[in-house]
Nucleic acid binder design. Structure first.
Lengths: 191, 191
DNA sequence: TAAAAAGGAGACAGATCTGTATACTTTTAA
DNA sequence: TTAAAAGTATACAGATCTGTCTCCTTTTTA
């Protein structure tokens, strides 16, 4: 792993665990063992480093969703047309139950950088769009009445599960979300 | 309004609009026209001021929910046993569509203070518990199979709507949440 | 009315944070 | 092998932030 990658990885973990604004550059440098000059060789500012961590997280997260959805798809029972999107909620549940879960990095970053046109906030908005798009691809075309709107609903359930799990420390939230998703999906099937 | 109340109100608005960590004490003082000594006369630290703003917000928010739910209850149609909780989602929608909406202050604060045992984080967790309790009271007893669990589900929908509306700038999220709530509620009715 | 409490204005200490500069060392590549 | 590029270590500038302190004025209360 290059120094740059190592730096971004370390920053990402610290930002995710302790928040972005409360994590100083010096902490990132000490933790990663990289010199300050190297950081500013690769990034113009802390903000650019933050953007890089969000991009890295976006890739990681989408990969995790793709793999997890494939992994849990065969285990679904009932209508096969629902298997893919239901597996998505199992992937979500696995993540939420994992050791280092600390909410959604993008929701957290949005809260720390609330200005709508802040590049950091924009990166978060884009990520959420990608998730909706991903879910829409899971909804077999021709199966549901309005797949885009349905994907938004599923994303809403996912965000609710993530936030609930984070704030009330409830690992069951994803299962509840999945149960609700099933009911909603069935109600939106084209007869 | 006493100086203390004025101070807390000003701080609350600034914290909500621009985030807590990025709002310095001096900004709060300049905006409120209060002297620094007065602030530290009433609060031992910035953290105490933050807690006070969260308490104020909690009261405001719960009052808003109570009033809004009463206001929108008569307009519901269909099964009257669902009217109260459905009205809750209308109250939520009104808030989300309002001018100064910038997400949930408690979700935002949780993201800025992620340490689970931080008093600020704890205040947020407590608020979320109160919301669940409020929703449970809206679910007419004897009507649903498991009202506590159902209340948690409704809270999950509400959080999802709030977060979605905030990150993707979608004012329709609350309506989607209400539509989903209706389907879920009907599926949980005791026959 | 007089003593006491509270507030205003602002200087200041001490910490912290971002970003730059300098001097030296290691790695890379022509 | 040797010149250039990249990295290390660290000092430092300049800004900002929290919280304390002083001096003075206003308000409250006994």
């Amino acid at each position: 792993m290059s120094r740059k990658e190592h730096l971004v990885k370390t920053a990402q973990n610290l930002f995710y665990k302790q928040g972005i604004r409360s994590t100083g550059i010096d902490t990132v440098l000490a933790e990663s063992g990289v010199a300050k000059k190297t950081l500013y060789n690769h990034f113009k500012s802390k903000d650019e480093l933050i953007i890089a961590t969000l991009q890295r997280r976006d890739q990681q997260f989408m990969d995790m969703l793709r793999l997890g959805t494939q992994k849990y798809m065969p285990a679904q029972n009932g209508d096969v047309r629902l298997s893919r999107v239901l597996a998505f909620f199992d992937a979500l549940a696995e993540w939420i139950a994992s050791e280092n879960f600390s909410g959604c990095m993008f929701i957290n970053a949005s809260a720390e950088y609330p200005r709508q046109n802040d590049p950091i906030h924009v990166a978060c908005t884009n990520h959420k769009r990608l998730v909706i798009q991903f879910i829409e691809e899971l909804l077999s075309s021709g199966t549901f009445k309005d797949s885009y709107n349905l994907a938004r609903r599923m994303a809403l359930l996912a965000d609710g599960a993530i936030v609930n799990a984070h704030t009330t420390n409830d690992q069951n939230a994803a299962k509840e979300a999945k149960a609700m998703a099933l009911i909603i999906l069935e109600s939106e099937l084209i007869p």
